[in-house]
Structures are given as C-alpha cells and as structure tokens.
Design a protein around this nucleic acid. Sequence first.
DNA 1: TTGTGTTTTTGGAACGTTCCAATAAAGATC
DNA 2: GATCTTTATTGGAACGTTCCAAAAACACAA
Lengths: 351, 351
Amino acid sequence: MGNVRVTVVDIAKAAGVSKSTVSLVLQGSPLVNEATRAKVTAVMRELGYVYNRGAANLRQSGANSKIIGVVVNDLTNGFFAELAVGVDMVVQSAGFVQFLANTSENLDRQREVIASMREHGISGLIVSPARGTKASDLKPLVAAGIPVVVAVRQVPGAKVSSIVSDNHDGLFAAVRHLVALGHRRIAFLGGFRDTAVFMERLQGYRDAMAGCDLTPDEALVIDAGPSRAGGFDAIGRALALADPPTAAVCFNDAVAFGACDGLRAAGIEPGKNFALIGFDDVIEAKTAVPALTTISVDPQGMGRRAAQLLLKQISAGKPEAEAIVASVRLVVRESCGAPARPETAQAPQAG
Amino acid sequence: MGNVRVTVVDIAKAAGVSKSTVSLVLQGSPLVNEATRAKVTAVMRELGYVYNRGAANLRQSGANSKIIGVVVNDLTNGFFAELAVGVDMVVQSAGFVQFLANTSENLDRQREVIASMREHGISGLIVSPARGTKASDLKPLVAAGIPVVVAVRQVPGAKVSSIVSDNHDGLFAAVRHLVALGHRRIAFLGGFRDTAVFMERLQGYRDAMAGCDLTPDEALVIDAGPSRAGGFDAIGRALALADPPTAAVCFNDAVAFGACDGLRAAGIEPGKNFALIGFDDVIEAKTAVPALTTISVDPQGMGRRAAQLLLKQISAGKPEAEAIVASVRLVVRESCGAPARPETAQAPQAG
DNA sequence: TTGTGTTTTTGGAACGTTCCAATAAAGATC
DNA sequence: GATCTTTATTGGAACGTTCCAAAAACACAA
C-alpha cells in the first residue's frame, strides 16, 4: 500500500504551482515568494514527500552527491572506530552523509569498496589505506577530480592530501623519556620494515638515541608483526641478546602488551624491572596492569581534521593536496617505571 | 582533466552497438552474444567507464539501490563496532554497500540520518536504536515498504524484525552460577528501569533467585546509569544496606568495572571478598584485573545474522517481521571468585 | 524460395530532478 | 498610458540508465 512514490510533480499539482517552483523551494532559493514557499512545504509534509537525491544528482554535475566515502582498514580496532566517529561528526553537521566501509586490511576488498563508492557518486573519500596500497589505487579517483584524503598511513607517490600523526616526534619523545630515567640500552620492538610508519618511527628512535650520545646498535631494532604476538616474539629475541636492553619502545600498544606477556614469561616484571612504552594510547592502555606509558594520538580529533580537510577541498573545487602532521604527546603511566605522577590532563585537540 | 563522464552511449558508439546492448551487458544478461559482450567489456575497460548507480536506480523501481543503511547508537563502543563489522561482512559479499552512521544515542541525530538514508534510497535498514526510539520513528520506513531490522534493543510496538540477545537467559545463568558458588545475597546493579533490556535482565535475575528458593529482596535491585559511574554509585548504595550482598550481577561490563572501583574504594577486593559478574564481554573484560566473569554475546555474529535477516526480507519482497533471540553464554573468569579454571573455548556462533 | 523459430539487437519512452530561457505579474518611472 | 525594473513563476530539455515492444539477423526445414 502507499507504495507509490510521491514526486515533485505531485507536490506541484497539489499546491497549484509548477514543478520548477517546487524545485526552487527544495533548494531554498530566495527567488520564491514566502507564501508560496509555505504552501509548498506544507503540502510536502502532508503528502510525505521524500527527496530523491539520486535523481537530483543525475541532473547536476554529479559532484555534489552529499556522500562522503570513508574506508578504514580495521574497524574492530578502537583507534579506527574513533577515527570514523570523528569524521562522522563534522561530515554530518555539514549536511553530508557518511558511507563507511571496512577493508580488514585486504587490498581486494578495498578496491571493491572504493569502486562501489564511485558508482554511488561520492563527493569525496577519506581512506585509512590497507597495507600495500599503491598510488595507482587512488589514481582514478583523483583523475576524476574526486578529492581524497588519506589518513593514518601515507600512500607513497599519491598526489592526495594526507593526515598522519607525528611518528618521528612520538618515538623521539619516548626514547628521551627513557634516557632521562637512566636507561642506556633501549630497544625498538615490532612493526614491519616495509611500511612508511615503521621507518618514520625508527628514524625518531635513531635520532633520539644519537641526540643522547648513545651508540646506535642495530641489534636492538627488532621488527615483528605489529600485534600482541609480534610483541611477545620480539621481546624474547631482545632478551636473548648478549647485552640485552633494559627498556623498550614499541611500535604500538599491542606490541607493548605482547612484550609485557613475554617479560612475565621470563620472570621479569614490566614497569619494575623493565621499562616499556607503547604507541597509540588505545583504550585499554589506561586500565592495563601496569598502566601503559604510551604516545597518545587523538584518533577522533584526527578524523575531524581529516573531514574538515576534505570538505575544504570539496568546496574549493580545486584538489590542491595538503599534508597535515598531527602532533602527539607522551602519556606517562606505570609501564615505563617512572615514579608515579598524576596523569597529564585530557589531551587538547592535536595540532 | 578528462573531467567528462563516460556514459553508456559513449561505450555504445565506440563498440559499434546500441546503448541497449551495452545496458544488457552491464546487467550480465544471457541474451547478448559472447563476442559482443567481450567487445563491449573491453571498450568499457579501455575508456574507464564507471557505472552510474543513481541513474539506474532512477529508472528502476528504486528499491534495489544496493545500499544498506546501518545505524548504531555508539560506534566508539566496541560492541557496536563489532556489530557493524559483522553486518558489513555479509552485506558486502552480497554485493551491497553499507551506509553507516552513528547517532551517539541522540534521537534527533537518528532521525536525521534515517531521513538522509531514505533520500539516498536504501534498500533496507539495520538499526541499533537510540534510547527512547519510538515505533513512530520507524513507521514511515515500513509504510514505504523498506525492510527494517532492529538489533540489540527492541522498539516496542514497531512491526519490524528484530534480533536481540537472550537477556533473561544470561542473567539467569549468572545468578545460578553465583548461587552454586555459595552466595545467597546477590544484588542486581545498574541499568535504567525504563528500558526493555533492563526489564528482561531483571526478570532473569528474579526467576533465577526464585528458582533457587532465595527470598527476593527488592532492595538488592539497584538501578543506576549503565556506565562505569553508575556502577560505582550502585555498589556504594548496595554496601550501605543493613544486610549487604556478597555478590552482584551487573547490567553490563561497564557497570561491573565501576563496581570494582567502588569495592576497592571500600577496601573490598573484587573477586576475592566479593563476587561480580558483568554482561557483554567487552574486549577489556579479558584483560582487566581481575578478569571479568561475564555474559558473552557475540556482536559480530549478531551483526551477521541481522544482515542475513535483512537480505532475506529484501529478496523476499514481503516484509514479514521475524524476531530472533541470540543465545548467550557465561564466561567464567576471575571476578566471580570461582576457582580458576581454563576459560571456555571461543564462542561458537550464537544460535 | 518461403516459412517458422530462435537468437540478438535496437530505438524510443520512461524515471525524478535541476537548469535555462522565457514569460507573467506587479511596481516604478517617465 | 507606455516603458523599464524587479520579482515570481513556468514549460521544456537535459542527466544516464533500464525497460518494452518490435525489428533484424540467423538457422533450419519444407
């Protein structure tokens, strides 16, 4: 019943005006008389009219579908969920609607969802790319004039805007903190060497070590999966060294948790006999035992900024690429063995 | 540049056929000759054709937009993120694309996003409704013949399909477990009384108590916000009773964590001097100290089932409402003070 | 050859909107 | 009263696809 769609001409007929006038009302044009506008809107409400954006889109250049595509590589990871929420906030309040897809770090899936989004005529795309994403994956988008913002991870060679956290700075700060606590043998654990994020963090580690006049020892750089299992593995290898470290900075919090497990398995108590610092400040970092000292990035704020950046590009029309580096901060908790101090206040918005 | 869109007639011209033939190829019709199909697809690839679903949609009845709307009330909550991922899995592999929005428990926002989704012509909607959602909010959808599945929370009076976890059963199992451990004074903490979920869980609590010949004491039912703060508050009130409980089942894990805080503040060690059971099995439950005994529901599985249910309704055409109750299971960890036993194996898919 | 059946292909006419150029109505100015 | 502005309104032509009825092309038997 009532399955028949009510269109703009139905409204026009019922209100005694032309469809053009109704269209004008729809887009809030100042050309239409107030009385007419009132009548038309009344009729629209009465008949239960719903706007057909697809049809509108067809006629218009197609660029303004009011849809923003958001692609994340792992939605079950709280970090990316927060990111998506941040994007959603600003995107919604700008009258857009978010099209969110999860790729589970799968390149084929990512290609599919991006293609699907194109078919639906997104006005812009924010993507936290799956590992191994190439510039060529984003090429068609930019060729079609669709603004793209990559977040969290860079895509080398892609001529698109980006927002990433300050990986170098984060590791730098972590290492200096450990040095200040008296550590000399500091390892860098976890992460894949073939990623840009890894290399940036590694560089931060190296620069900090060098800046503190510590002899760099490449044996202390132990790559492994950026996961709990990887952390467990990495710390095991670190402890097996002839001259083992007394502290470690980890690629991310998951690695740090795995390292905790590994330390305990070796009879070492993290935060007491060994100092550990993570990266990300995931939600569990605060409540874990010991509470994890880590580099905090504000994922929701990052999402908001990514969205703002994208909207700016959409309205500007010209896709001038811009690169943002979101600042991070060290949150000192227990795992680094520092004397307990009150936790620093809630993060101001990054940047 | 190349900013000009390549359409089906461009393909037709280049391939030396009519646009109708190209359309046939597009929808994989068996009517078209293999040689022709090959030629057309080749040309499509060559010219970089992208399908315009909006246009297609316009001509078709509009019901098959291949978009599924997903609305959750709190995406930052791991439970709902997992739910969305579950939905995404089956929705994607069925060739649909997911439109995900977050309402942050805000009814106005929820109205907005649902309206926006309608404008885009979704084929179906899965919604984990914000608190206070009325049947009238979903009425227009079902009137328009759009299949709707509500998940996690019921919407009283709405004639739509639903999938919720077995709240009664979960609480029932939790209480019986505590009784088996020797507890007699068992409280029920947290949650808002005006929600259906609360009432179902409460009924499970009551039935279990009654089934164990324990005198029901309404003073032990302490409602409070379904949050950490609410849990802290509730346990405080519980301990202040003349005859305080020795154990508690909580409305959800957040309440349970708050109760832990409250117990410690009162010098009582949860899991040792007081038994606590949560509900949800959020990700932190496993790693908290003490590890939280809780009722586990498989949110991802729930999302998958919700999606399957919706897709069934979409293809069936007739929106015959169906109600699914997903089974839950008790996961015994440390907070209930039980003797440590190996954790039960990974959850089989609910139901 | 014609007839009959099967397989392929094809022009329009929709779908619901926006845009454009043009018109109508109403005031303002001479 | 005629002309010019300003303000509101309007019909048709798009947009890129699918659907329909019908035509063309082909195959084979009579």
